[in-house]
């Protein structure tokens, strides 16, 4: 008997045959009044940098945050306007080829992406590999990640945010603050393998 058949046979023999009803009494809608304020509060708590701006100020805010970066990597679908104030070199991933990992890992490289949804209650950005986010390595290898969130993308709690994702079979990355570890004496320390600097630009209006 193959391992597959053997395991399935054992599971069939052992499982309880009683159907289980699953209650879902938890909050489907978070109910917070000012989602943007909540998101900002939670992001700051994780030691991310947060800037609020209106759409006209976006390019200037992004340029200011990226002023220390000599090169910015951007997914091919990131709007031109986001980078119109930035003076350094811009590398578009996939135009024409995917950037090499070494390019992403070079010193002074930052990455600029959007996101699919943000979760206010937990301070989480969800990237779903959409055109303005690109493949997963982009927001991972560079040491500095700038993420643009529009206020309309902010959901209250986790259930609302997951329900908003158009296609959950796309590669998904949930990001809550810069990379961190709790492995030394169970204290949280920011800055391990992922980007050590996370800047979030919340565009209101």
């Amino acid at each position: 008997m193959s391992a597959r058949d053997e395991v399935l046979r054992r599971v069939r023999a052992a499982r309880p045959a009683v159907p289980v009803a699953v209650p879902r009494e938890y909050l489907a809608v978070d109910g917070a009044e000012d989602l943007v304020a909540l998101l900002v509060d939670r992001l700051l708590d994780y030691k991310a940098t947060v800037r609020r701006c209106n759409p006209d100020e976006l390019a200037g805010t992004v340029a200011e945050l990226l002023s220390g970066a000599s090169t910015v990597v951007a997914p091919s679908g990131a709007p031109e306007g986001w980078l119109s104030g930035y003076q350094g070199r811009v590398l578009r991933d996939g135009e024409p080829q995917q950037l090499a990992v070494a390019d992403l890992d070079a010193p002074g490289v930052a990455v600029l992406t959007g996101c699919a949804v943000a979760v206010a209650r937990t301070g989480t950005l969800i990237l779903d590999a959409g055109p303005d986010q690109g493949r997963r390595a982009l927001s991972l290898v560079p040491d500095h990640h700038v993420c643009v969130v529009h206020s309309g993308q902010v959901a209250g709690g986790v259930p609302e945010a997951l329900a908003r994702l158009a296609d959950p079979t796309q590669p998904l990355t949930l990001i809550s603050g810069p990379s961190a570890t709790s492995d030394i004496e169970l204290n949280r320390v920011e800055g391990v393998h992922g980007p050590r600097r996370l800047d979030v630009v919340v565009v209101v209006g």
Binding site: P168, P171, L174, S176
Partner: peptide
């Protein structure tokens, strides 16, 4: 587990995505 509202990173992947991973 870590007493955080959300852990820094959660990854979901479904089989193979061409050009990503």
């Amino acid at each position: 587990s870590t007493g955080e509202r959300m852990n820094p990173y959660t990854s979901l992947w479904t089989g193979v995505t061409p050009g990503d991973g």
